[in-house]
Design a protein around this nucleic acid. Sequence first.
RNA 1: GCCGAGGUGGUGGAACUGGCAGACACAAGGGACUUAAAAUCCCUUGAUCCUUUUGGAUCGUGCGGGUUCAAGUCCCGCCCUCGGCACCA
Length: 890
Amino acid sequence: MFLISNKEIESMAYPFRKIEKKWQKFWDENKTFKTEDTIDSKKPKFYVLDMFPYPSGAGLHVGHPEGYTATDIIARYKRMKGFNVLHPMGWDAFGLPAEQYAIETGTHPKVTTEKNIERFREQLKSLGFSYDWDREVNTTDPKYYKWTQWIFLQLYKRGLAYISEVPVNWCPALGTVLANEEIINGRSERGGYPVYRRPLRQWMLKITAYADRLLEDLEELDWPESTKEMQRNWIGRSEGAEVEFPVVGLDEKIAVFTTRPDTLFGATYMVLAPEHPLVEKVTTAEYRDQVESYRQEASKKSDLERTELQKDKSGVFTGGYAVNPVNNEKIPIWVADYVLISYGTGAIMAVPGHDQRDYEFARKYNLPIREVISGGDISKEAFEGDGIVVNSSNNEFSINGLPVPEAKKKITKWLEEKGIGKGKVNYKLRDWLFSRQRYWGEPFPILFGEDGEILPVPEEDLPVELPPMEDFKPRPSKEDEEPQPPLSRAPDEWKYVEINGKIYRRELNTMPQWAGSCWYYLRYIDPHNDEKLVDPQKEKYWMPVDLYVGGAEHSVLHLLYARFWHKVLYDAGVVSTKEPFRKLIHQGIILGETEYTLYLDGKNQPVSADLVTNNGTHKETGEHLNTRKLSEDEIQKEGDYFVLKENPEIKIDARAFKMSKSRGNVINPDQIVKGFGADSLRLYEMFMGPLKDMKSWSMKGVEGVHRFLNRVWRLLIDDETDTLHPMLTDDEPTSDQLRVLHQTIKKVTSDIEELQFNTAIAQMMIFINEAYKWSSRPKSVMEKFILLLHPFAPHICEELWQRLGHNQSLTFEPWPQYNEEFLKEDTVEIVLQINGRVRATMEVPIELSKNREELQEKALRTEAVKKRLEGKTIRKVIVVPGKLVNIVAQ
RNA sequence: GCCGAGGUGGUGGAACUGGCAGACACAAGGGACUUAAAAUCCCUUGAUCCUUUUGGAUCGUGCGGGUUCAAGUCCCGCCCUCGGCACCA
């Protein structure tokens, strides 16, 4: 066995460790990337922003540098293009992730947060990102959250922040309430704990007041269509009517919202949500017990259970009746949890003939089903499509014979005239639940008097600092107890404030994680301003953000909240743009290496993958199967599947998985930087595939780009002497050399503009492959190439630039321009097709390739073509100048 | 179920407004250098078939149709994967 040591591998590679340290130190000491505070308004600006990270205890993972490298390439490129570039970084350090980590490790969040930030900063610096570190922000810094609190006060002043006792999503395991957006399938997004509904007094932000503007202004944004669509769905605007149904025997009316007022005559019963306040009044003595127990039952269910059981609708009759105002029909009132208290009015008119949910319910409980729109077959299913209205008239009014859209208009107008209803717009979007029963968040700048008076903390007293507390942990509370936030255990000096002889108590809840990240992009513009959130002159110059890169998981939460706050600040005159982020890109997630998995049964016999369910059990026997990872030489491809080499009957599962600790497929960037260098990591992350796509990691791929950088190095540096390579010359470049160079300039430039970094790198590889064939390496050509490579692999380029005799960083060197003259080739290859199939090619001088007649003639004179055309009649000849000649013959 | 994105060699991926499918890289195979290995350099590499060779033929971008001189790209119908939403009245 011949083993080689790491030392030896190192000696073969270019000295990336030395180089990267050297230039990181240089950039740091010289503040190379500092964006001047005084604005040079003669220069065009470019604001390129990353979604700032939660400094988690796990440190950076390979997903972070993906987006960060992309933005760094843009930042470095734009600087060379003469732009004034703002490229900052900071920390989203409040909130659940940081706090959970603190709880798990039993250390105070302030301590862990500081430590984690330290580590993140070091890791980011080790990757050579060109951030202006003088603008670093930290959401947990009182100087920062002073302004988060200030924004809250603006919201409060405008009536956009209010306290309300509403049913909230209570997560006992986390000891806090959560926003709707933080719940996935009835479980907390963080940790996956069950969530229950319970009423609590909470701060709410009136995002619904901005629903229309949030929807409309999406139009002008250069964002992924899928993200815009998600926000549209989340806002969920629907037009319809609100109609009032009087309750029989009571002086009460039940208001319902419907998008189908045209089906009013088909309403045969009503349903109230279990939480609806009128349930008690409507319920008759006879039905009280069952209604009560149904409500009890429903309230105990978590959201998860309520949605999981959705297939089987349940409900109970209240004994009460309402009157359908269009036909004075007496219809029964039911309670069912398929009606949600939080949408519309919490009550519906049920039209089983034309709504599938009502249909199922009516079928189950034998309620009448009536057709009022023709076109379907309501004996089989509800007809929800457009049709012609039938059976819909009373003595003074009819919509019979009208198509659905017209019927809607007509009946809405009539309802308004009669005062029994009106046109209405409803949103799925609900007000933003803004309180958390947690320690690690911004305190609210709010005081309560003994009489319940709400007193905002005066602006000059901001920030309200978080009190230092040893015991910061949330207390999971019992279901029936009022939750006690950690701040309730704060010292009395903090909790109570005396103003004009009156004692006030501070708000004890804290703000949610999203508060600090809603506006951080503004603070970067003017990070040290103690007088203002941001100086208006600077804001006007830098906003909006020109490019924002971050994960698609923030499509709704962060990006919707930030837009909301931005619009409020716009109305308050703090910012000058309606929208914060002009262009948005989501980087795709990076999966672990592809794994080939073989399934084995209890007797250790292999089981073909098509017999295995998603949960890893046998489809036929239900047996839980073991797995074994296979190496690539144990498998082969057969048709669409991978199979076992030694037994091709057995199909193999070939998949890449999300990186996770438990799976053990997590790639740590530090380890890549150590083994191959930051430049290799950056280059590989960009070379993997299109930025937006999901892709899986490959160590071999990293080695590949590392080899490329080695080739770049050795093209310029003689390994033996560690000096400039003897083949470097001051010769005039040849036209061939200029052509490849200028093709590369052109391709790399346009690819960077379009964020297609993988193909830009491919072109640079082509250049290097070509350059190795040359007998001399003109310095002027090599220097241009180094400038092109620089945004991708800055360390190696700075070093080579310096060794080529420059004593300034290349950061502000002008970006190379390509010259169309050099791209021209003397001849062009023209493809000759016969009946659409390529049969030959011919070289023609460039000027001739534009001439249709000559091309056609020359093509027909070509031997190979003549041979093929023997005995055939030419029907047609298609000539595409500069490309091809296609001869159609029979 | 609904909405969005996507399916191209052994792998990751290229292909401008329809004009030589598979750039670039990885893997694999062969060769050079070396006592040997590593590193490096050169060559081959979609599949099947024909030919002694140079070379040639046929098929091939999820599946089935269509438009066109020409389709990965356009149109119609379907299948699958990923992401999101999901009693929203």
